[in-house]
Design a protein around this nucleic acid. Structure first.
Length: 452
DNA sequence: AATAAAGCTCGGGATTGATG
DNA sequence: CATCAATCCCGAGCTTTATT
């Protein structure tokens, strides 16, 4: 329950009675809604959150929260990301006309449009937009199938020009997704409530989401290079294919043992941004035997969460939203995933990225790659939780393509190895799955054996 | 005008080990 | 033992916008 904290100082919220009221106001007849209506609001917003990881534009209060709950946008995003919906089919629907009317004529006391450099007389009228419909199902069958539809047209201003209110980052997102043949569709979100407000249920079919097949949110946009140097924890020099040497961010502060005989082939991601000092990120490194290893430690948690939602891990079947980075009450430590299973037991999952060549045999990858006091403490806490009746899971993600088993690096950290054995004896479940490194994306693969 | 709810910005925590 | 390195993520606090 900790995930859904009430926002400070807010009065409890009234659930808006949306559908009938706003239809009446805007003059849209229910019968005018095509076959895929009605769209259940809370389900639509879950849908929005699930596959995208995208910002939720204007939908968050429909998160299916109970009366009186309100979330900050950040925790809401993670709440929605964890909902288990998968988009299965896509078909086209009829174009429709959207009637919108906003602007300073109605709200003359608002000066903000000018302050943002928007035209003062802005008035959004209407436009016809081709729509598409997605049919979605809950892979666990707990929720009825969904239909959602959207248009890919940008909002228009009075002159019929694309509204300047469509944020550039959204445009970029849409361009990227629409150009991907595997993309089932994208709902063009607009961040401007003036254009698209959640209470306008008649506009629900324009609502924003990017509906993508499993794993696409774990997209990779990689360029080949050679890792020349790794230094100061976060930095790496990478030579690109054209000979340029760039400074890249190394998102792995660990030892990366067995992966740092240099130079070696690498894949880097180019993500320029004013927020970033380094526009390149080191993601994959070639292993000694020509496989690939994921060294970007920001990705494994998302991979495992996505896989769990798709049902890849039979032991882990969430019956509640998955919460990231949460710890038990009164404990400073956090676990990577937390949810309730179908019997209502609390499940804590700690994920470890396993990339080190085993010193014992080829084809095996061992953990840890350096002494890890933190990891041991996590194990001890997991053991306590298991003894107290919760489910506690140590999940090893085998993040290299040339291995088929994970093991313990007893020689590197005997205390950790002992702690893992204690944990297992104490009821901690130890699981290991392979990471599938597709050139375009990351996916959680099948289980692999754990050797002792 | 009052209120609900959205978006935005900012800053802190977390990550790890080398270095002074 | 504090500091530093780059990034991501989140929440707090604030602003903006729509609705009644």
């Amino acid at each position: 329950m900790g995930a859904l904290q009430c926002r400070r100082g807010r009065t409890p919220l009234r659930r808006p009675r949306l559908l009938a009221a706003s239809r009446r106001r805007v003059g849209v007849q229910p019968s005018a809604e095509p076959a895929h209506a009605p769209i259940h609001q809370s389900l639509v917003s879950r849908l929005v959150g699930v596959r995208t990881g995208a910002p939720l534009y204007g939908l968050s209060h429909r998160a299916g929260l109970s009366h009186g709950q309100s979330l900050g946008s950040a925790s809401l995003r993670s709440h929605l990301r964890s909902q288990p919906f998968v988009c299965t089919t896509l078909r086209a629907a009829e174009p429709r006309t959207h009637h919108l009317s906003v602007g300073p004529e109605r709200y003359p006391h608002r000066a903000s449009r000018e302050s943002r450099g928007l035209p003062a007389g802005h008035r959004q009228q209407h436009h016809d937009a081709p729509c598409q419909v997605a049919e979605c199902e809950d892979p666990r069958g707990r929720n009825p199938p969904l239909h959602a539809s959207w248009s890919d047209a940008a909002p228009r201003d009075a002159g019929g020009h694309e509204s300047s209110e469509l944020p550039h980052r959204l445009e970029a997102r849409l361009r990227g997704h629409w150009s991907d043949p595997r993309c089932l569709g994208a709902l063009p979100a607009t961040r401007a409530p003036a254009v698209l407000h959640p209470r306008r249920v008649d506009l629900l079919h324009r609502h924003a989401a990017v509906l993508v097949p499993p794993g696409l949110t774990l997209n990779l946009k990689l360029e080949p290079g050679r890792l020349l140097r790794r230094y100061k924890r976060f930095l790496a020099d990478v030579e690109l294919a054209d000979g340029r040497v760039v400074q890249a961010h190394c998102p792995n502060t660990g030892s990366m043992k067995t992966l740092l005989d240099l130079p070696r082939r690498a894949w880097v991601e180019h993500r320029p941004s004013p927020q970033r000092k380094l526009h390149w990120t080191l993601v994959l490194l070639e292993t000694a035997r020509g496989g690939w290893a994921l060294v970007d430690t920001s990705r494994p948690n998302a991979v495992v969460q996505e896989g769990v939602l798709r049902g890849v891990v039979p032991q882990l079947v969430p019956a509640s939203p998955i919460v990231r980075e949460r710890g038990p009450e009164g404990v400073k430590k956090r676990f990577d995933l937390f949810f309730a299973d179908e019997s209502g037991r609390r499940v804590w999952v700690e994920i470890k990225n396993v990339t080190m060549d085993s010193s014992l045999r080829k084809g095996r990858s061992d953990f840890p790659d350096s002494v890890t006091q933190r990891g041991r403490e996590h194990l001890e806490l997991l053991t306590q939780l298991a003894r107290a009746g919760d489910r506690a899971v140590q999940f090893f993600l085998l993040s290299r393509t040339d291995c088929d088993a994970v093991g313990l690096a007893r020689d590197i950290d005997p205390a950790y190895a002992a702690a893992l054995e204690d944990a297992q004896a104490g009821g901690v479940e130890v699981l290991a799955h392979r990471l599938v490194i597709d050139p375009r994306r990351l996916l959680l693969g099948e289980a692999v054996p754990i050797e002792h």
